[in-house]
């Protein structure tokens, strides 16, 4: 019978981890930070959209930690130049596309973009071309939940939690490419959807796109 645990080394620390668990959760549970914006525990298959949780696995190269399961004897590094380079670039792209109106943002105290900006020492990039400004209407129709699509970083957490955990299925992706956005069915105001106001989506939203009143 296969053993239930495997031994891995992350940043020089030897860790015993459940077989099949993804590197990201093993690292986080052992106090090793890996920047990530879209992953939620329990997602199967993992979403893998933010492209932030890069790690380097010896013999394999760069992989995203949210998608790669730990294997016996695996040696993982979370802080190498190529890891940081990709993480910084992904974060810079997200920042260049985000309205940096932090002082008026309801999530400023627990914004994950800001958290990883500090962690990776990244600023809003000056060399990139500014992305076109988004001007989607802000939905404040619902008694407890607000939605500002302009701040959304398209991590897909709300879509997943609404569909797979809550079961309300209020959100999904519409359009594609740069025009992709999160929408209710046919763009209806939140008050006219099946939203019961549980605020699970606002809890997982890493930025100020979804928040409770």
């Amino acid at each position: 019978m296969k053993r239930e645990y495997v031994d891995v080394t992350i940043d020089g620390r030897e860790i015993r981890a459940p077989r099949g668990e993804k590197i990201l959760w093993v690292a986080l549970e052992n106090g090793i930070e890996i920047p990530h914006l879209c992953a939620l525990k329990g997602q199967d298959p993992p979403w893998g959209g933010c492209r932030l949780c890069w790690v380097e696995v010896e013999g394999r190269g760069l992989v995203t930690a949210c998608t790669e399961p730990v294997r016996q004897g695996m040696v993982v590094h979370t802080d190498t130049p190529s890891v940081r380079r990709l993480q910084r670039r992904a974060l810079e792209l997200l920042l260049a596309d985000h309205p940096m109106d932090c002082k008026n943002c309801p999530k400023r105290d627990r914004c994950e973009l800001l958290k990883w900006m500090r962690f990776l020492k990244v600023k809003v990039p000056k060399d990139l071309r500014p992305f076109p400004e988004k001007r989607y209407p802000v939905d404040t129709s619902h008694p407890v939940l607000n939605f500002d699509p302009n701040k959304c970083i398209l991590c897909g957490r709300c879509v997943w939690i609404a569909k797979e955990v809550v079961g309300c299925g209020v959100f999904d992706f519409v359009w594609r490419g740069y025009d992709i956005r999160i929408s209710t069915f046919m763009g209806k105001p939140l008050k006219d959807t099946d939203c019961n106001g549980c605020l699970k989506c606002a809890e997982v939203c890493p930025v100020g796109a979804l928040w409770g009143k």
Binding site: R51, A90, L93, D97, G177
Partner: peptide, 22 residues
């Protein structure tokens, strides 16, 4: 490619658009 990109991942959605803008 930027029109046909699905929009899911940050590099695809924003990286391709950035290349196009340059």
């Amino acid at each position: 490619l930027s029109r046909e990109d699905c929009g899911k991942c940050s590099f695809g959605r924003l990286g391709i658009k950035q290349l196009l803008m340059i």
